[in-house]
Design a protein around this nucleic acid. Structure first.
Lengths: 217, 217
DNA sequence: CAAACTTTTTACCAAACGGTAAAGTTATAC
DNA sequence: GTATAACTTTACCGTTTGGTAAAAAGTTTG
């Protein structure tokens, strides 16, 4: 029996239905929120299904297992993440401008995607079982380039001779804390939640201390 | 029937047996490690019992429920924690010395008690359900005093006029990241784990940037 | 409209988990 | 040495959870 034209080459495109696309998106969003709040093991697929407005079995039709769903959530997050982590991509010719933009972008990310940040954080705290490989392949190359850039600034005497790696650890932790540790931050500030002014204060403070602390400008 | 002497006043000291004290300690330590690695829901009491070298039922004799055990772990951690968080307690007359000691103490804590830091972190990320009250009552007063101290430094012109609260958020996050995010940090540095030199580099870097960034010295 | 495919519902299950009850064993105090 | 309290083991149980099987309902395409 000869292979007919339709069966060959491009595996029948048969477009993904709109329903699937829409439902997968709601499920992923519901899952992100619950994973952020209760972690992987603290979140049942039934709870995710409830929040997404569908039955557990229906959810399992779209995502064959909890692990697959979790990995999809992670992979969604990472595509957001690593981009923002590239210092070189920041606009500005002056080192100070680039660092300022970098800090601002990361704080904004904490404000707009706190759940993503939390899921990422829990995953790293737990030893990054699913992320290690991805970080190895995607974060590290970006980081290495950025480290080179910072080293060139040092060589040109434009900033103090500090360890570039620890500079990134500082910026990552200080900016993500406004998402990950928002409970502690808002408690300390005596508020129920953080508002735009708080985030602006964070940006102002961090840019001041880090830029001055590096001996820039 | 009159109350006899033994039954009164001091509730019969009947010293807690050495066995109980020793076993509770091993269980608490085992639990801390597993909670740090897998979170509350990801850790079964059977797994904790295994790691502590006893049966699940025997563990339940010492800790009547998983929740009670978890709260004991948290409370152990917090007694370590809040002390180290007091800037005022740091030695040194100069602001720079106090900040230096504070940073150093917190980084050392990340090195010696990484699991405690992780359990604390996960708890905060998840919204601090068990901790909120404790932090309200114990961390906040300490923080308020420290904020006042920093404000007095600003008033005396000894440091730049920055927001004191954000200063503490910065120091907490930047120092705890070496425990909580050690997987990401060591991956970035191309190592299996962090050694003493890495922690010393962290201390040197952070003290340089923060002290200079605050306009001290 | 009918065939083919996608989506949803109904029914079910084995394993893991937190916890209880009670009997059996060991250590301590008098 | 024996009574009492502290500790350990054995046996068990209800619930929750991740996942499967298959039928029913709905949608799309020729």
């Amino acid at each position: 029996m000869p292979i007919s034209a339709e069966e060959t080459v491009e595996q029948k495109p048969r477009r993904r239905s709109r329903i699937r696309e829409a439902h997968e998106a709601t499920v992923l969003s519901a899952a992100e929120g619950l994973f952020a709040m209760n972690g992987y093991n603290g979140t049942s697929i039934e709870a995710i299904a409830d929040k997404a407005g569908m039955s557990k079995q229906n959810l399992l039709y779209y995502f064959p297992s909890k692990e697959v769903l979790y990995k999809r959530v992670l992979s969604n997050i990472l595509s957001l993440w690593v981009d923002k982590m590239q210092l070189l991509e920041q606009q500005g010719k002056e080192p100070a401008d680039m660092v300022r933009n970098y800090i601002q972008g990361k704080v904004e990310m904490s404000r707009t995607n706190p759940d993503a940040s939390k899921v990422f954080a829990i995953e790293i705290i737990n030893g990054a079982p699913y992320l290690k490989e991805y970080l190895q392949n995607h974060l590290l190359p970006v980081l290495e380039e950025d480290v080179k850039l910072v080293r060139s600034w040092i060589a040109e005497g434009r900033i103090d001779a500090v360890d570039p790696y620890h500079l990134f650890f500082l910026i990552w932790s200080a900016t993500q804390t406004y998402a990950d540790f928002s409970a502690q931050v808002s408690l300390s500030l005596g508020k129920d939640s953080l508002d735009d002014e708080d985030f602006q204060n964070a940006i102002d403070f961090l840019t001041h201390v880090i830029i001055k602390g590096l001996g820039m400008k």
